[in-house]
Simulated assay, not measured.
Amino acid sequence: MRKSLFFATVFYLTLLTAEAQDFNFGVKGGINVASIGGNSYVGLGGFGSKVGFHLGGVAEVPVSEKFSIQPELLYSSQGSKWNFNSSDGNLKLDYINLPILGKYHILKGLSAEAGPLVGYLISTNEEVENSRFSKLDVAFAIGASYRLNDNVSVGLRYNKGILNINSDSNIDGSNQNNVFQIFAGYSF
Rank of each mutant, 00 (worst) to 15 (best):
D88I: 02
S77N: 11
K66L: 05
L44F: 06
V61M: 03
E65T: 14
P99N: 02
H54I: 13
K66E: 08
E72W: 03
K50P: 09
S64D: 06
N39D: 15
D94F: 08
D94N: 15
Y41Q: 12
G46I: 06
N83H: 03
N90E: 14
L55P: 05
D88P: 02
V61F: 00
Y41G: 04
P99E: 07
P99K: 07
K50S: 09
Y95C: 03
K92F: 04
G46Q: 11
L93G: 11
Q78V: 14
G46H: 08
L55E: 00
S49Y: 05
S87T: 15
Y75M: 09
S80Y: 09
I69M: 05
P62D: 02
N83K: 11
G45Q: 03
S86M: 03
S87A: 08
Q78N: 11
L74K: 01
E65W: 00
Q70S: 07
Q78K: 15
V61R: 01
N39M: 02
L93Q: 04
S86R: 04
G79V: 12
V42I: 13
S76D: 13
S64C: 09
S40D: 00
G56D: 09
S40H: 07
L55S: 01
F67H: 05
F84M: 11
Y41W: 11
S68H: 05
L44P: 03
G43S: 02
V42A: 02
Y95H: 05
V51C: 06
L55V: 03
N97V: 14
S40F: 04
N39Q: 13
F47H: 14
P71R: 06
K92C: 06
S77H: 10
Q78F: 11
I96K: 04
F53P: 08
G89I: 13
E65Q: 13
D94C: 14
Q70C: 04
L93I: 15
S64T: 13
N97K: 06
E60P: 01
W82R: 15
G89F: 10
L98P: 10
V51Y: 02
L91N: 04
K92M: 13
S80P: 11
L91W: 09
G57Y: 01
N97L: 03
E65D: 09
F53M: 03
K81Q: 15
Q78A: 12
F84P: 00
G52L: 05
G79L: 15
V42E: 10
S80L: 07
Y75R: 11
V42T: 13
P99M: 07
I96L: 15
F53R: 04
S49M: 07
S87I: 12
L93Y: 01
E72T: 00
W82Q: 14
D88G: 03
S64N: 04
P99Q: 06
N90K: 15
H54P: 12
G102V: 12
G56R: 00
I69G: 00
N97F: 05
S76P: 04
L98I: 11
G56W: 01
V63Y: 06
K81D: 15
S80I: 15
N39T: 15
L44K: 01
L91R: 07
Q70D: 00
N83C: 07
L44Q: 07
V63H: 00
I69D: 00
S77V: 12
K66A: 12
G45K: 01
L93H: 06
K50G: 09
H54N: 14
S49N: 13
G52M: 12
G57W: 02
P99C: 05
